[in-house]
Design a protein around this nucleic acid. Sequence first.
DNA 1: CATTAAAATGCACTCAGTGCAAACATTAAT
DNA 2: ATTAATGTTTGCACTGAGTGCATTTTAATG
Lengths: 203, 203
Amino acid sequence: MSEIHTLLASPQPEGARERKRRETRQRIAEVALRLFLAQGYHGTTLDVIAEEAGISRRTFFSYFKSKDDIIMFGLEADWASMIDDLLKTSPDVAPINAIRDLMVRRIERHNTAQMQAIDKLMLSSESLLARKQSFYIKQEQLLFSALCEVWRQPERRPALRMLAMMSIGAMRIALQAWRESTDPNKTVSSFILDAFNCVRAEL
Amino acid sequence: MSEIHTLLASPQPEGARERKRRETRQRIAEVALRLFLAQGYHGTTLDVIAEEAGISRRTFFSYFKSKDDIIMFGLEADWASMIDDLLKTSPDVAPINAIRDLMVRRIERHNTAQMQAIDKLMLSSESLLARKQSFYIKQEQLLFSALCEVWRQPERRPALRMLAMMSIGAMRIALQAWRESTDPNKTVSSFILDAFNCVRAEL
DNA sequence: CATTAAAATGCACTCAGTGCAAACATTAAT
DNA sequence: ATTAATGTTTGCACTGAGTGCATTTTAATG
């Protein structure tokens, strides 16, 4: 019974236990990111992270299942909220426009310097880079599910599947172009719009 | 000078050294795959693989840079040949058709049972799964480069970039649909064709 | 056969990650 | 307030991947 209650009443008390847990998790992530940026990913051991965060090495693993997960954790949360927004969209809008606008809005809320830093960090670890790319594909699945929720006609499903793939792909390409761009005046958003126009041009 | 000679004369003697090295690499890969299928990925240690392959544990790392790499190795070689074929294509053909046909032809040369087995194997390791997906994205880059070689007009580049993304994406989706399909009569190729038609329908 | 360079090996080490059981804190119930 | 139940932290000992280094083995060449 208490389970059901918890599920239904999510914006609720939040006992001291949950709060502390959330805080610790956050602290680990912050400490780790700081150390990664200062001494590199491989140059930072879990022992040091645990120590700086004021927990034991063993306890670290009750918050993250691996070193890589510290970085992934931030990304996941961020995307979840975009999908939530998508679910509130009216089915009268063209899906591709809905996605494009949400992506642009989402990315404009970001600290680009931090994005660059994390991005660079990823390049220093094969496994981390792989997980980032793997993450894009997971997002594609989530996006597809969300699209199907909003635009419910079964006959559109295959097209929506492709659309999810193209949208995430366009974003990936846009971010890559931005990262490699030498012109500091071009914003991330402008690259996103370009990429979507390019898909559109062929659609 | 001997370097240049070696470079120019690649289909050449192949000394006993190179042959042996190639054979050993192959043997390790085969042994490892057999063991993975029999006892699972995590259930197979590098010690056992090395022993079965008749080498020392340390030597393993002079053939593969990680355990994951054993699996990746096979995939890379396979794709390289497809890219080679693409480079021989006439620029008069529509690029999307060229890619589609090459993919279908390539996949039809494959042992589907083995494909399924490797696929299932990947699911048992997070890192391996991540690397597979990462691999797709690397292929996308290679494919894009190859497309630019054949269809050289600079103004087509952005479209070709998107095309590379969509092609790899379509293949990914096709393979996924095939993997999840319950109908044993539908071939992998048919799924690929469906996926490409779906892209085409929107193009 | 002697020389030289590549490849294989053993050894000792670091670090990520896990299982287990004991200690500790929090919550709810009596 | 005491107790019981439950969740969290910790230490310890272990496995397994991956690396650096010094040594030995093996193949290629004059």
